[in-house]
Design a protein around this nucleic acid. Structure first.
Lengths: 168, 168
DNA sequence: TATTGTTATACTCTATAACTATA
DNA sequence: TATAGTTATAGAGTATAACAATA
């Protein structure tokens, strides 16, 4: 698959001559840039996590459980925007691998508290370290201050928007 | 791809409400923030483009053709990172709707130059205006300078380092 | 021989309806 | 009645192999 083409800040000629297209219209959109950056980072993530057999969702669940022991499926689904039916096989796979443990919820007989096993804790710790290192490499051209700014600005687009309409 | 971002969980403490999880580990990752922002913006995009029957890829193609008349499928696929087999039905749909026109390429008998029809131009212009307006609303809390910074920082993650990966 | 566009196909991700058991 | 977890399934999105026409 071809890589993203680099943008030329000069307006493109009207004739279909050169190879590169003028992408300045799209690169002015936050949505486009966020999506492309997300895909690029996700591809790198996929490569580095392949030895551990973890996808982004798997990693997120392990990382959250490491810091929120006993969290329920419902809480994890809400936090990660995963639909409950799609969460079942994910959790089942982690369970089969012996990374998590399901314990009855102390106060709610319907719910199940999820906990990392020792192996799960070890894997969460190791992969979290690798991901943090990967991010440092990818953000190598950014200063620490730029990186913090980037996080803060991105979060403005998905956190605390107040009024929200229902989708379909 | 349109993820219903209905679960942004306002900080209001709902009484039967779920205990919020500690997400600080994930929110420290650019990849996580970019993905969440991309999904949130994509959901809003989906809502506003629904009346026009355009998905993100459709809009990108129309916008690119508006500024790159006569571009070929191969060029658009390379620019947008879409695999050629997946591009066929997309282009066919735009063609059936009378938004684009396929003309024989002047210098390559294999290729086909893609052009917007009058209807295509009108739709590209109208939807581009709507998307730009949407972005202004979503980025309402950002200063113009912050927004420019955000674009620049995001582009560092997907531009100018495409010599390694071959997939996605 | 290489490239453009295409068909067929498979695999993943995401979404909806409906069931169960608890509350 | 409402909620947590689950099943089954459908629909997008994305991937590879292989082919015809042209270079």
């Amino acid at each position: 698959m071809a890589r993203a083409s680099k943008n030329t800040t000069t307006p493109s000629p009207a004739t279909p001559g050169p190879e590169q297209l003028d992408t300045s219209v799209l690169e002015a959109l936050v949505g486009y840039n966020a999506r492309r950056a997300s895909i690029a980072i996700g591809a790198e993530f996929f490569e580095r996590m392949a030895p551990y057999g973890l996808k982004q969702a798997d990693f997120s669940v392990l990382a959250l459980l490491a810091h929120n022991p006993g969290a329920t499926s419902r809480q994890l689904c809400a936090t990660l925007d995963i639909l409950p039916p799609n969460f079942v096989s994910l959790i089942a796979a982690l369970d089969r691998r012996g990374l998590i443990e399901r314990r009855p919820h102390p106060r709610d007989g319907r719910a199940v508290g999820l906990h990392l096993t020792d192996a799960g804790h070890a894997l969460a710790q190791e992969t979290e370290k690798i991901v943090v290192e990967m991010e440092s490499e990818l953000a190598g051209r950014l200063t620490e201050r730029e990186r913090t700014t980037l996080q803060r600005l991105l979060q403005k687009f998905y956190l605390g928007k107040g009024e929200k309409r229902e989708t379909r």
